[in-house]
Design a binder for these strands. Structure first.
Length: 495
RNA sequence: GGUCCUUUGGCCGAGUGGCUAGGCAAAGCUCUGCAAAAGCUUCUACAGCGGUUCGAAUCCGCUAGGGACCUCCA
């Protein structure tokens, strides 16, 4: 089966063919570590983690590059060029690199909790100043950039004359050139559509580097082009990021790399949509973000409780990555319950030991095989994780019914059961990256629970319900749920 | 103002012109010492109007609402 990816550049689904068979180069725009990550940031990294996992599952050797932006961006281009990282650092009375380290650590911690696999290479902007300067020099020598007062700008008008500037973001260059809005400090640029490759640093600027044009810092877009080129080559397979980066960031990346390397850098552009809150994009401009630390702790007015990273991962996977996804505490509660149910069914499945040589219920057996086969079809169809989960849910009642004896043990064949176990594990753990929420991986705790369950079983068999209820109620009070099962067994789990 | 997207049942959300997406919530039943869990059943929607079609949530047009980008943003 062929994987199809929706290419933002062509605006249609295309069969994915790697440049080098069996190898995939993928670049995803990483965070600016000048502040804490919020829920909106979780989406691209979870989305592209699944892309990474699935491409690997399909037998590709994937080089996944995701940068850390630790050098300054412009607070507002054209106005006083401010180094975002530097500015905040001064406010907080921290060394810039101390601040960068703090938020980088927090970001890594969150990524780990989401069970995201680390990228193959995680380059930093500050570690690639030389590469960026080299690239700018190349663009100047090609005649597509010019220097003014220690800053360097990309000549968009000249580029647009021979290239399709605006194709990715669906923009018309003439409209950009005619924008009426006035910004201060535009006079340096030959044209308002031009963007900075290098900015001369004001004296108070903390982050600054020597360059052929004087001391300054790199422009917003050049770091990604420089690092992508360095690690993935002049042309690579996939470039991902949030939809809000399409313009100007990605559009500019295309322009820079195309001039520098004489070819378009990216074969497939992938953009995830935004997470919204009350229908509005979650973002710092709207002042409506919920930080990941707040989500994990429940410490936010809009949250009714704390949410586990897996709940958030599941929540995100329940929608398609190109749709907006509306956040609410209720929606997360629903995801938490849904994930719990699915995961429990999955655990039951792995312990299930039923089946017959020939399925007793041919129709059911057939359905299961179809549901299982469809999992990969859905993933091949531009990573339709929502449909994958829906199919898995179709099988949950079957699993539970087999366990409870509502369905005869020989309803399905042993071959089907075996396939089911294998597919569930592959899809849920390896591809979707889901993992168990609460651990009974603590041996001491497990031992104590075994003991309590033993005592309770004894009490129950003597019809001593006072004792048995006491055990169950007190465990409930500390967040451990005991469930009596059909066969007289008991299972437990953390709230 | 320009460009583009979107509007699905109480809520969240899939949806390729014809066949019940799924989840959460709710109601009833079964099981159960009581619970919980689980199973079964019920709840059939596509903003409005018009058009194309044998047939439209799905295509086209208009109207209304919401949103994104055009500036830092995942």
């Amino acid at each position: 089966m062929a994987l199809k990816i929706y290419n933002s550049y062509s605006r249609q689904k295309e069969v994915f063919t790697p440049i080098t068979p069996g190898h995939v180069g993928m670049y995803v725009c990483g965070p600016t570590v000048s502040g804490e990550s919020h829920l909106g940031h979780a989406r691209p990294y979870i989305t592209f983690d699944v892309v990474f996992r699935y491409l690997s599952y399909k037998g590709n050797k994937v080089r996944y590059v995701r940068n850390i932006t630790d050098a300054g961006h412009f607070e507002e281009e054209g106005r006083e060029a401010e180094d975002k990282v530097g500015k905040k650092a001064q406010l907080e009375k921290l060394e810039p690199m101390e601040l960068v380290q703090k938020y980088t650590n927090l970001y890594h911690w969150a990524m780990k909790r989401f069970n995201n696999i680390e990228p193959s290479i995680e380059p930093t902007a500050t570690g690639h100043i030389v590469e960026q300067i080299n690239m700018i020099e190349k663009i100047i020598s090609e005649g597509y950039a010019y220097e003014v007062n220690g800053s360097v700008y990309f000549d968009v008008k000249k580029y647009a004359a021979g290239h399709d500037y605006g194709k990715l973001s669906g923009r018309i260059i003439d409209d950009l050139l005619e924008t009426t809005r006035e910004l201060e400090g535009q006079e340096e640029k030959r044209d308002r559509a031009d963007f900075a490759l290098w900015k001369s640093a004001a004296p108070e600027h903390i982050m600054r580097w020597k360059s052929p044009w004087g001391e300054g810092f790199p422009g917003w877009h050049i770091e990604c082009s420089a690092m992508a080129t360095k690690y993935l080559g002049p042309e690579f397979d996939i470039h991902g990021g949030g939809m809000d980066l399409q313009f100007p960031h990605h559009e500019s990346e295309i322009a820079q790399s195309t001039i520098c390397n004489h070819q378009a850098p990216v074969r497939y552009w992938m953009h995830n949509n935004m997470i919204t809150i009350n229908g509005r994009k979650m973002g710092k401009s709207y002042n409506n973000v919920i930080k990941l630390t707040e989500l994990f702790s429940g410490n936010h007015p809009l949250l009714t409780q704390a949410f586990h990273p897996m709940t958030i991962r599941f929540f995100i996977l329940q929608s398609h990555y190109r749709s907006t996804l509306d956040f609410s505490s209720e929606a997360l509660v629903a995801s938490e319950k849904a994930f719990k149910r699915l995961w429990e069914a999955y655990e039951v499945l792995q312990k299930l030991d039923v089946g017959a040589a020939v399925a007793g219920n041919a129709e059911l057996d057939e359905n299961i095989n179809r549901w299982l086969a469809e999992l990969e079809e859905f993933l091949d169809d531009d990573f339709s994780t929502a449909k994958v989960l829906a199919n898995l849910f179709e099988m949950a009642p079957v699993i539970n019914a087999l366990k409870d004896g509502h369905l005869p043990a020989d309803s399905i064949s042993t071959a089907t059961l075996k396939l089911m176990k294998e597919r569930f594990k592959t899809v849920m753990e390896d591809i979707l990256g889901l993992e168990a929420v609460s651990g009974a991986d603590n041996e001491v705790l497990q031992g104590i629970m075994d003991l309590l369950i033993d005592i309770r079983k004894e009490a129950k068999s003597k019809k001593d319900f006072v004792t048995s209820d006491k055990i169950r109620n007190q465990l409930t009070a500390i967040g451990i749920l005991l469930k009596d099962e059909k066969d007289g067994g008991m299972s437990w789990g953390m709230e």
